[in-house]
Amino acid sequence: MVSPSHSEPVIELRGVEKHYQMGDTLVKALQGVDLKIFPGDYISILGPSGCGKSTMLNILGCLDQPSVGQYFLDGLDVSKLSDDDLSQVRGKKLGFIFQSYNLIQQLTVVENIEVPLYYQGVSEKESRDIAIELATRVGLGKRLDHRPTELSGGQQQRVAIARALSNDPSVILADEATGNLDSKSGGDILGIFDQLNADGKTLILITHDEGMSMRTSRTIRLKDGSIASDKRREEVAR
């Protein structure tokens, strides 16, 4: 299947399941998921609606914990961590990009990018410098003091990307990042993702868009809460 890379996995799921109690019935949103993600991986997680993509993202993003199984992030078992420690892990090691951008409305571009740094206790000056640099990198150097409502969808998503990068995370998780964008802006965003991966970032894109598999180096398909296939591009191409 996936050839073990030269380095330790940044993410490892072992027998992960997620159960939801819906009245009398137990819904198994994820079952028997084993997965290793290595530094520098560029992954798309694909599957039809209801297959468990969001559940998977929540667990990978330490927003939720598996009902069964273990999750190692940078070698640390996060499946049993306290709420505070999970917050700490999210703030330090993960970057989130959401379909609806999820910027904080009362904050400016720079301030939005600074939010993760604030919770990491980075000094005001340092976090301001980082935020300005990242905003410039995603092409918003001239919009530092704008508010989200003054920006287009594509610009907002670029702020979100800058924000996801601000704490220099081990993994960036994007949930339908281009779902609300027109094809032009969406293409721009995907271009940024490509560039980030080229710079060595580990990205996980969750999407129902089949075309994405052509872009990423590895494609994981989910079906009814299990991994149906997990292919690297070489294999896809072959």
């Binding site: 917050s87 330090k92 919770y119 990491q120």
Partner: peptide, 16 residues
């Protein structure tokens, strides 16, 4: 609520 969710995702603890 949404803002609270965003902040929590970005590393805010309950006490924050």
């Amino acid at each position: 609520t949404r803002e609270i969710g965003i902040r929590r995702a970005l590393g805010a603890k309950k006490k924050d």
